[in-house]
């Protein structure tokens, strides 16, 4: 907690601040002690909590799945293998129904995105105060446990996908072909500059919408959990109501986290499929 008895706005503010490591105003390196301090650190700082939880969730994914992969046999599958294969099969079906080109990267990447983002989103279902309070007891001021509520995380994944889109667009169509695709429609070739501006905005909108959609959904969901948690400072009736609402929102949120993870994975596949499509103009 920011102070012994935080006001509501302090409480909310506290929940929305990352644990940021960077250069402090006095020139030394360390953790920012407030949101303002974190903001003043500029680009050369890192959100340790987001990165930590993100990597932790990624390792959970890799650990569970590589365990299943290591033991994978054609024999009768066990519980874990069944579960893992079900997800793999699901992603494989989705990929092959959208992506018709030959590329061994896309399906594993979609799997990684789906499971990893889902696990990161899942942290949203841990009651909002548990881990921050535990961290606070251990002397860590800020602890934002849901990496996908940090735009750095979602946007970096979106831009990574965007990088792959550009790479495969140029690889499949050639730099000229890619430019031609951007310039020669929807209007006739004579209006190439207008076409280019339109298509360029469309292109840029892909990673922005991809990253911001996930961020927005998870941030809003987290915000509602935090606001509902504020109710726990009220009387017993308000407490009970808050509990019921927390539970209800959590149930609803299970759908959201899965849906958002799936959308992120599917849009990645769709964008990469578009990058591979060589259209005739």
């Amino acid at each position: 907690m920011a102070s012994e008895n935080p006001t509501t706005s302090e409480y909310i503010q506290h929940h929305l601040t990352n644990l940021t490591y960077g250069q402090l105003p006095d020139g030394s390196w360390g953790f920012a002690q407030s949101a303002q301090e974190a903001a003043s650190m500029g680009f050369m700082s890192i959100n340790v909590d987001s990165m930590g939880w993100s990597i932790a969730m990624g390792l959970v994914f890799l650990f569970v799945f590589s365990r299943a992969a290591g033991r994978a046999t054609a024999g009768v599958p066990g519980g874990l293998q069944n579960f893992v294969e079900m997800i793999v099969d699901f992603i494989d079906d989705t990929t092959s129904s959208i992506f018709s080109h030959k590329n061994d990267l896309v399906a594993p990447m979609a799997l990684t995105i789906f499971v990893w983002v889902w696990l990161m989103n899942l942290m949203d279902l841990v009651p909002v105060d548990w881990i921050p309070m535990l961290a606070s007891a251990m002397g860590v001021h800020f602890m934002k446990v849901v990496p996908t509520t940090d735009p750095n995380i979602t946007m970096s994944m979106a831009f990574s996908v965007f990088g792959l889109i550009l790479y495969y667009s140029i690889k499949c169509k050639g730099a000229g072909g890619f430019l031609a695709e951007l310039s020669f429609h929807p209007f006739p070739k004579i209006l190439a500059p207008i076409n280019f501006i339109l298509e360029f905005v469309t292109l840029i909108a892909k990673p922005l919408s991809l990253g911001l959609r996930l961020f927005g959904n998870m941030y809003a969901g987290e915000m509602i959990f935090v606001l509902l948690a504020v109710m726990f400072s009220g009387g017993i009736a308000v407490n009970l109501l808050g509990g019921v609402l927390q539970w209800g929102w959590a149930v609803f949120h299970v759908v959201i986290i899965t849906l958002q993870a799936f959308i992120f994975a599917v849009l990645t596949i769709v964008y990469l499929a578009q990058a591979h499509d060589v259209e005739e103009h």
């Binding site: 050369m44 700082s45 990165m51 994978a72 990496p147 750095n152």
Partner: peptide, 27 residues
């Protein structure tokens, strides 16, 4: 926005590579 962008991108590619190399094919 800060250096987390870069860190997460690197993590992303490492994880995707690991999945591509060691998880997807045997499964």
């Amino acid at each position: 926005l800060n250096f987390t962008l870069i860190g997460q991108s690197l993590t992303f590619f490492v994880f995707v590579w690991f999945c591509l190399k060691y998880i997807w094919p045997p499964l």
